[in-house]
Design a binder for these strands. Structure first.
Lengths: 347, 347
DNA sequence: TTGTATGCGTTATCAC
DNA sequence: GTGATAACGCATACAA
């Protein structure tokens, strides 16, 4: 038995399909009694309009998509969730696409674009060229955690300054041998954090630090990179990690090497995931509004879909000092002064 | 300038729309030279077929949806990711919907159903009645982490037996005052874990434990519940948590109360999230194949969409013993014997 | 191998 | 208020 159509409902209600459409979409005047009849008929047939047909006629998908590299860890999850919330708020469905660094990511994204009214694109999932192509085809795009491209706006969380500040804090605590753990080429945000790390050294008059210790975003990678970094007599006394999960990997590495945090090595992360407060010692980190990032990106996208030009947006981050960056045992600077405006001390 | 349609392309290639459709969908024979012309025209216009129209004509959405309560924590993230992977593998788009316990969840799901070929429904996001309604309207459904409903199959991870075994392990270690932290009414899986917890007491001849200490899935809730539970002279010596994140909250609670794990209180979790290995001591837990759950649910859904009847599926779980459940200081049973077949000792 | 014509289920613009 | 009817963009029998 085929599913009922607007014709079935119209016939049952004794009206034309135009009227059915009117009551359902509340467009145009309809007599109260007529409305009742239509509603009743629709209910009896448990009919709901075919979104495909409705979309085709109205030239609207009623859907928005988000493209991200992966869904590993709280960061991406929260961003996607924020996006979903905004989409629902705008009465749109949310489509997701994880590229995983697949080679055919470009065509996957192009394909996705054909089924949504607009797209949020995270990180380096696709090239700038693809972004332009998308816009060229009439698909509004909002970039997330990645620089703007032409007129395509970007939503980001401040990274460079926060990285400079948290590094400066470590330096102020007396650290002179610091390492950066993360891959600046993996994501624009990480690159900013790395540059802030460098900048802090410059400003403090310290010699330039070594190259970053490459690591992905997941804990296992942080563990591997952390082990390689710390299993060395010339190990650093402080490690600035590109994200919390990698930092937790460093925690495990330090433990397995018999090193104490922060006495033997200070550690900082990024994101302020819940686990950062559960570990011992609590992890110092930089909080970024993950959910809000997704929400704002979705909101900007909605604006663009509506034809309203949207400007790029940078959300503030917040340094969260916790015991993991506490003064090392042989601290020469007992002060706890933090050279930054926005700060926070927990717990 | 309106986006090009199949007519534009056909005209430019000097063929009919039927031919364009043929080369694009590779249906029916087309001369090589003709094919080239069409492809060229399509490329020049950077045209891609309108999915709405294609879907309408083919009576197919080319999309699958998944409904979940929230995206907090690795569990839901991984499940959704597994679902997405399977959807992509089946050449379908993935739609997501988080209900957040919203009151109008039912209609949101019904609405989502109108734009996909099938739906995976997690937990208690909607009632059994809605599931039947969905099926009645011709939308194949696969349940996830929730019992089957009529002919609608379910994909689950084994919970009851694993809960019995890990509880039995604690009891074998000498614990007699155990608490269950989690809300059996929050999710069917948690209810199974609670029942396994009870069963282990029965089998060991221990008096029935107290009521579960209600807690949600996130760390903060685990912290609050854990604090209430442990800040008491008559506190339990072991806490079986419904999931890892809540367990991490208990870690923080114990730390803040000056209690040591496992000496003062043993703790176990569920899921085996990465952070479980990063905390000190490492968290004993029950590993469930989160990603695979999503993938299998997606696969079953594909089968159902294809008209193939699908049976319910229960994936195995694995007990992962770590230091957090190590023998208490005053252990009366020095044995480490584990009364279960599948087990694992880490690190 | 290719073209014609119809249907897919709505929306929306007209008349009435 | 209500009803025909033309798009909407594509898939696909059916012809040629």
């Amino acid at each position: 038995m085929p599913s009922p159509s607007i014709y079935t409902v119209a016939q049952r209600a004794g009206v034309s399909i135009a009227t059915v459409s009117r009551v359902l979409r509340d467009s145009g005047p309809v007599a109260a009694t007529t409305r009742e009849r239509v509603l009743a008929a629709a209910a009896e047939l448990s009919w709901s309009p075919n979104r495909l047909a409705a979309g085709l006629a109205a030239r609207v998908h009623g859907a928005a998509g988000i493209v991200f590299p992966d869904l590993a860890g709280p960061y991406f999850s929260q961003v996607v969730l924020g996006f979903e919330e905004q989409a629902v708020a705008d009465d749109r469905s949310a489509l997701i696409l994880a590229t995983h660094g697949r080679l055919n990511a470009d065509e996957m994204v192009l394909d996705l674009a054909a089924r949504v009214d607009g797209l949020v694109v995270m990180d380096r999932t696709v090239t700038d060229e693809v972004v332009r192509c998308l816009e060229g085809r009439g698909s509004p795009v909002v970039l997330l955690a990645r620089p703007a491209v032409g007129a395509t706006p970007a939503v980001r969380a401040e990274s460079l300054d926060a990285a400079t500040r948290i590094t400066a804090h470590l330096i102020a605590l007396g650290h002179t041998r610091l390492a950066f753990l993360g891959d600046p080429e993996a994501a624009p945000d990480v690159d900013d954090r790395w540059r802030g790390f460098l900048l802090a050294h410059l400003e403090a008059g310290l010699p330039a630090p070594g190259k970053p210790v490459r690591s992905g975003f997941v804990q296992d990678e942080g563990y591997a990179a952390g082990t390689a970094l710390l299993d060395d007599a010339a190990r650093p006394t402080a490690v600035v990690c590109a994200n919390d999960e990698a930092a937790l990997g460093v925690y495990a590495a330090a433990r397995d090497l018999g090193l104490r945090i922060p006495d033997d090595v200070a550690v900082t992360g990024w994101d302020d995931i819940p686990a950062a407060r559960a570990v011992t010692p609590p992890l110092a980190t930089v909080r970024q509004p993950m959910r809000e990032l997704g929400r704002q990106a979705g909101a900007l996208l909605s604006a663009r879909i509506a034809g309203v030009p949207a400007d790029s947006l940078t959300l503030p981050t917040e340094i969260v000092l916790r015991a993991s960056c506490g003064p090392p045992a042989n601290s020469r600077t007992p002060t706890n002064r933090i050279p930054t405006p926005t700060r926070r001390l927990e717990p």
